[in-house]
Write a protein that binds this DNA or RNA. Structure first.
Lengths: 202, 202
DNA sequence: CCTCCATGTTTACAGGAGAAACTTATGAAG
DNA sequence: CTTCATAAGTTTCTCCTGTAAACATGGAGG
């Protein structure tokens, strides 16, 4: 599909090319301070070309975030439903997958949860984020059904887990869970503390 | 000290005035996309004046973040050590204070934990952030000493709590803990889930 | 009283966002 | 096959920003 058509005027799939360039820069710089002009330049088009595909710079950023959520959801799903894991193991696998994703894509992950990825003005982005969240909800329901997890209102449990995993991810990519501060294996230790509160067996 | 001296040339305490203006804009806009020129304009000075007090825009942002950590630490400390609370109650009070702070100062809170407040290039900022973190560490030590908290390595416990509270705060100010998604009192519910994992009494 | 220096201001410049007007390839209709 | 409407690029333009450099001012110390 993406045969390197280098014909002059019409690019073929400039939208995708711009997204790829931007994702590259996001991964390289670990931030999204890049200018739209720089993205255009690196993609080899004029600085006004991107405006044919994105209303403004922020619309491109939201599209990047949406793609991020798609990828995160896929990564987590694969990690959790690969083998016949217990619910608790699934939880750990999913959480680790999320945190690994953040570590491998710190810029993208931060963008996904930043104010620049405003979900109130972008339905597709909002939906993608919700789908990711629902992976967690489903798992908690499963855990409560089979008696592994404490039967408390799913909402508070979900908030706790979501916050915990997301908070850990943010701290990890912020380098704020270094050994000096918090020990050797803080992530799994922290997740175990959480699971002690979630699971039935103390 | 800040007698409203409106003498022309020398401002008196421009540095402080710029910081106040910027804090205002941060609170109003809930973001820090404001330009340095706009800050100068609103403070009533020329657009180059700020450079006499801050190397560049980012240095101002880091100073705002530092002030944020000072305030957060003070707020949490006051909430936790007001009365003769139990350790568990102290924990809840501190966590709630942190989350309330985030809710009341969403822009500032986000800035404090953003990449724009780079703690690796700003010692005072780094120190202020550490002091805040140490409030939590002290509390956990106290809880383990008096037998309220499980005697596991303090590091994992700290990571869990830090991540949980920070994650909750971020989700709350991101409006991602709305009722539709997660229930009525998600914050305290989530904190209780965490405390179940931290405390000894199941 | 004079003079220095911190703290202002003015001026200048390189770049970015985005709008508008212009250009070109493509593919559907005749 | 030719025509031509249109999507997708480009050029040009205006306004704004960050930041540097040169200049101005006025208050404190000799």
């Amino acid at each position: 599909m993406s045969e390197t058509k280098d014909r002059s005027y019409h690019h073929g799939d400039l939208r995708r090319a711009l997204i790829d360039t931007a994702l590259d820069m996001l991964a390289t710089d670990q931030n999204w301070t890049f200018t739209l002009r720089e993205v255009a330049r690196r993609t080899g088009v004029s600085h006004a070309a991107p405006y044919k595909h994105f209303r403004d710079r922020e619309e491109l950023l939201r599209e990047l975030a949406r793609i991020g959520f798609e990828r995160l959801a896929e990564t987590m799903t694969r990690a959790m439903f690969s083998d016949g894991l217990s619910v608790r193991e699934k939880f750990m696998a999913g959480a680790q997958a999320c945190i690994d994703f953040a570590l491998c894509n710190p810029g993208l992950y931060r963008l996904m949860f930043s104010a620049d990825a405003d979900k109130t003005v972008d339905q597709p982005l909002h939906d993608a984020a919700m789908r990711t969240f629902h992976i967690l909800l489903q798992l908690l329901e499963e855990g409560q059904r089979d008696g592994s997890f404490r039967p408390i209102p799913i909402s508070g449990q979900a908030a706790a887990c979501w916050a915990q995993v997301h908070g850990l991810a943010m701290l990890v990519i912020g380098g704020q869970l270094l050994e000096e501060k918090v020990g050797k294996e803080p992530v799994s230790a922290a997740l175990n503390v959480l699971l002690n509160g979630v699971c039935c067996d103390t």
